[in-house]
Protein backbone atom coordinates (compact mmCIF):
# COMPACT_ATOMS: atom_id res chain seq x y z
CA UNK A 1 0.00 0.00 0.00
CA UNK A 2 1.27 3.48 -0.90
CA UNK A 3 0.53 6.62 1.07
CA UNK A 4 0.55 10.27 0.27
CA UNK A 5 1.41 12.54 3.19
CA UNK A 6 0.86 16.29 3.29
CA UNK A 7 2.80 17.89 6.09
CA UNK A 8 2.71 21.46 7.32
CA UNK A 9 5.10 22.95 9.84
CA UNK A 10 5.00 26.41 11.36
CA UNK A 11 6.41 28.25 14.31
CA UNK A 12 4.58 27.56 17.55
CA UNK A 13 2.09 30.11 18.81
CA UNK A 14 3.79 32.84 20.77
CA UNK A 15 7.06 32.62 18.90
CA UNK A 16 7.63 35.67 16.77
CA UNK A 17 7.50 34.80 13.08
CA UNK A 18 9.57 37.37 11.14
CA UNK A 19 8.35 36.13 7.75
CA UNK A 20 4.72 36.22 8.80
CA UNK A 21 5.21 39.73 10.09
CA UNK A 22 6.72 40.85 6.79
CA UNK A 23 3.95 39.28 4.72
CA UNK A 24 1.35 40.92 6.94
CA UNK A 25 2.93 44.33 6.40
CA UNK A 26 2.98 43.66 2.67
CA UNK A 27 -0.68 42.70 2.55
CA UNK A 28 -1.67 45.73 4.60
CA UNK A 29 0.25 48.00 2.26
CA UNK A 30 -1.68 46.50 -0.65
CA UNK A 31 -4.86 47.66 1.07
CA UNK A 32 -5.98 44.42 2.75
CA UNK A 33 -6.78 46.22 5.95
CA UNK A 34 -8.75 43.32 7.44
CA UNK A 35 -5.72 41.07 7.57
CA UNK A 36 -5.21 40.35 11.24
CA UNK A 37 -2.39 37.86 11.38
CA UNK A 38 -0.15 35.89 9.06
CA UNK A 39 1.95 32.85 9.79
CA UNK A 40 4.40 31.51 7.25
CA UNK A 41 5.22 27.83 7.47
CA UNK A 42 6.46 25.03 5.27
CA UNK A 43 4.47 22.53 3.26
CA UNK A 44 5.83 19.16 2.21
CA UNK A 45 4.45 16.28 0.17
CA UNK A 46 5.86 12.85 0.80
CA UNK A 47 5.00 9.55 -0.81
CA UNK A 48 5.56 6.42 1.23
CA UNK A 49 5.59 3.06 -0.47
CA UNK A 50 4.76 -0.45 0.67
CA UNK A 51 3.33 -0.03 4.13
CA UNK A 52 0.13 -1.93 4.65
CA UNK A 53 -1.31 -0.50 7.85
CA UNK A 54 -2.29 3.13 8.25
CA UNK A 55 -1.16 3.14 11.88
CA UNK A 56 2.32 2.08 10.83
CA UNK A 57 2.49 4.78 8.18
CA UNK A 58 1.23 7.31 10.67
CA UNK A 59 3.77 6.28 13.25
CA UNK A 60 6.52 6.64 10.68
CA UNK A 61 5.37 10.15 9.75
CA UNK A 62 5.25 11.20 13.42
CA UNK A 63 8.78 9.96 13.79
CA UNK A 64 10.01 11.83 10.72
CA UNK A 65 8.42 15.05 11.92
CA UNK A 66 9.95 14.82 15.36
CA UNK A 67 13.38 13.81 14.16
CA UNK A 68 13.90 16.03 11.15
CA UNK A 69 11.01 17.78 9.47
CA UNK A 70 10.10 20.04 12.38
CA UNK A 71 12.27 21.43 15.15
CA UNK A 72 10.23 20.73 18.29
CA UNK A 73 11.91 23.61 20.11
CA UNK A 74 10.17 26.18 17.96
CA UNK A 75 7.93 24.46 15.44
CA UNK A 76 4.72 22.51 15.44
CA UNK A 77 3.48 20.24 12.69
CA UNK A 78 0.37 18.62 11.38
CA UNK A 79 -0.21 16.20 8.57
CA UNK A 80 -2.74 14.46 6.44
CA UNK A 81 -2.23 10.85 5.44
CA UNK A 82 -4.08 9.42 2.46
CA UNK A 83 -4.07 6.07 0.77
CA UNK A 84 -2.97 6.39 -2.85
CA UNK A 85 -5.22 5.14 -5.63
CA UNK A 86 -4.10 2.28 -7.86
Amino acid sequence: MDWEVKIETKLKDGILDPQGKAVKTGLKSLGYENVDSVFVGKYMEIIIKDISKKEDASEMVEDMCKKLLANPVIEEYKYELNKMEG
Binding site: L16, P18, Q19
Partner: peptide, 17 residues
Protein backbone atom coordinates in the same frame (compact mmCIF):
# COMPACT_ATOMS: atom_id res chain seq x y z
CA UNK B 1 24.93 22.04 17.60
CA UNK B 2 21.43 23.31 18.36
CA UNK B 3 19.78 20.82 16.05
CA UNK B 4 21.84 18.07 17.70
CA UNK B 5 20.68 19.18 21.15
CA UNK B 6 24.28 19.61 22.25
CA UNK B 7 23.29 23.17 23.02
CA UNK B 8 19.80 24.36 24.03
CA UNK B 9 17.50 26.57 21.97
CA UNK B 10 16.85 26.99 18.25
CA UNK B 11 17.60 29.34 15.39
CA UNK B 12 15.08 31.39 13.42
CA UNK B 13 15.54 33.55 10.34
CA UNK B 14 16.88 37.03 11.01
CA UNK B 15 14.24 39.50 12.09
CA UNK B 16 14.64 41.63 8.96
CA UNK B 17 14.64 38.48 6.80
Amino acid sequence: LLESNLLPGAMKVNDNL
